[in-house]
Nucleic acid binder design. Structure first.
Length: 502
RNA sequence: GGAGCCAUAGCCAAGUGGUAAGGCAGAGGUCUGCAAAACCUCCAUCCCCAGUUCAAAUCUGGGUGGCUCCUCCA
């Protein structure tokens, strides 16, 4: 196995990865705060770390992956109050929806999915420890972390408490000793969920849940901690302060990984810009797997440009929306599935058994390992996938000069490896026929075509061709062309597809 | 005001010291009743300036342009 090197946000450089326990990786990802429908940024972040997790497995590690659910939080409480709903019920509902959507995007469920509401005891425990260690103080039912008590504070983000004060735009709570101090525990307010604690009834602040849940499921010291770049400050900075404040120097995550942001037209996605798209919107428009494919062609740390074209009607409501780059990804993904479909059909009559293969037909998995070892370079893996598919198509097209069994074996091997490596990126997991049919239906719908009419014309052309009535056959081709329908003559008859150009 | 990131062909995107992966688009070709698909060939010297080095897209300094964080936003 190649040596794994990871870019660590804390040290700000790519360094060799040494796990706490040889061969094993404990990995924590800050999951969602489910109070509304998940947007595509959630899916991106989850995809990045799903890929990293699967890559670690491909590299031979035994991985324990923990992704939390922050189900007690201001945003949930606020949204629930507006909807007249119980906060925990609301978060439960959106947690289920989140998980459903992540599955749609090919994201595997975590090994453990801890929630705040079921880890109150652990949270109280850490908080008590921090109070005992002199890192936290109570003020009338609230408990705050004293940033001044933790000398290394700010190392992850490069922020210092002094600089923060200068830029602070939030109202400073007078009861805090320092503006940068943050709440570990918040005294209960009417209508909010609360639990008993040494400081009276209350609920956890933001940040502390991750410290508690990491320790509960991965131990005081573990390997990887991930999240979106925006979480570096204050969330992850505070997690470090909490965990090391409680368990001592050198504890907590040894490597920090942060995924880049999804940008729309160069701007961050935000509600005020009107460019927040839900997972459902994207999945309906181009298919979730195409989005996943698109993600994989970008390095997880880089920002991802996500282009879209929207038309709005008179009163500003969204009328139509197109995601050009995702559509392009979908076309390319179709190429891979068409290749797999050809391979499957060919291998169905024999896979050539064990033995030698042609040059380049057995290098994909190792090339993928090589690329993934270099800070999980998925785009390079994508290039390797393309090379493998090309070779497979070449072998399928032309078998001249190659031993029959070697050819079979090579094609079978390429098919298997395309799936193995594709799956590491969360793609090529479907049956080719399913994907291709779903895609066609999606395009039929997008273009507003009359499916039955097309099928009838295709049947007519098929008959015409069989009767060698090429004039009629060509006429039908001309009829459907303006609709964006292309006729494909195959040895077994005429098939059709919807052209998705531009 | 403080902290950081980015700048590679028409477009997307890897590459962090040794003479630019891959994809899309484009041009030509093989194949095909026509077509599509598939495959083949062609297509950049890396924002600007200065410097370090035998050697820089890759390092240093200075510009210019874009973005993010310091707001419970993945």
């Amino acid at each position: 196995m190649p040596e794994l090197r990871i870019y660590d946000s804390f040290r700000r450089q790519k360094i060799p990865f040494t796990p706490v326990e040889p061969g094993k990786v404990g990995m924590y990802l800050c999951g969602p705060t489910p109070y509304a429908a998940a947007h595509i940024g959630h899916a991106y972040s989850a995809s990045c770390f799903d890929m990293i997790r699967r890559a670690l497995v491909l590299l031979g590690y035994q991985v324990k992956f923990v992704r939390n659910i922050t189900d007690v939080d201001d945003k949930i409480i606020k949204a629930a109050a507006q909807a007249g709903e119980d906060p925990l019920e609301r978060s439960r509902r959106f947690t289920d929806e989140y998980n459903r959507e992540m599955r749609l995007f090919g994201i595997l469920p975590p090994d453990v999915e801890p929630r705040v509401s079921t880890h109150i005891a652990e949270i109280i425990d850490v908080t008590s420890k921090l109070v005992a260690n002199g890192k936290a103080y109570e003020v009338s039912g609230d408990v705050y972390y004293s940033v001044a008590s933790f000398a290394p504070y700010g190392q992850l983000s490069g922020q210092t408490p002094d600089d923060l004060r200068a830029g602070a735009r939030v109202d400073v709570d007078e009861r805090k000793r320092a503006p940068a101090d943050f709440a570990l525990w918040k005294a209960a307010k009417p209508g909010e969920p609360s639990w008993d604690s040494p400081w009276g009834k209350g609920r956890p602040g933001w940040h502390i849940e991750c410290s508690a849940m990491c320790a509960a499921h991965l131990g005081e010291t573990f390997d990887l901690h991930g999240g979106g770049k925006d979480l570096i400050f204050p969330h992850h900075e505070n997690e470090i302060a909490q965990s090391q404040g409680a368990y001592g120097p050198g504890t907590f995550a040894h490597y920090w990984l942060h995924n880049g942001f999804l940008n729309f037209d160069g701007e961050k996605m935000s509600r005020s810009e009107g460019n927040v798209f839900t997972c459902t919107q994207i999945a309906d428009a181009v298919g979730a797997e195409a989005a996943r494919f698109f993600f994989s062609s970008h390095h997880y740390r880089s920002p991802v440009e996500f282009e879209y074209e929207a038309t709005r009607d008179a009163d500003g409501k969204l009328a139509t929306i197109r995601f050009r780059s995702l559509e392009a990804a979908d076309r390319r993904l179709a190429y891979f599935y068409e290749t797999l479909s050809r391979i499957d059909a060919f291998v169905a009559s024999g896979d050539g058994g064990p033995g030698a293969v042609v040059a380049g037909a057995d290098t994909l998995v190792n090339d993928a390992r090589e690329a993934l070892s270099d800070d999980f370079n998925a785009p390079v893996v994508m290039a390797a996938l393309g090379e493998a598919a090309k070779l497979a198509n070449k072998l399928l097209d032309e078998g001249k000069g190659i031993d029959k069994q070697v050819r079979r074996r090579s094609i079978a091997r390429l098919g298997a490896d395309l799936r193995t490596v594709g799956n590491t990126l969360g793609i090529l997991t479907a049956a080719p026929i399913d994907y291709l049919h779903e895609r066609r239906e999606r395009l039929v719908k997008r273009r507003g075509l009359d499916r039955a009419a097309i099928v009838a014309l295709v049947a007519e052309r098929d008959a015409a061709r069989k009767a060698k009535d090429f004039a009629r056959a060509d006429a039908i081709r001309g009829e459907v062309a303006p609709l964006g329908v292309e006729l494909l003559d195959t040895p077994t008859g005429t098939d059709w597809r919807v052209v998705d150009a531009g």
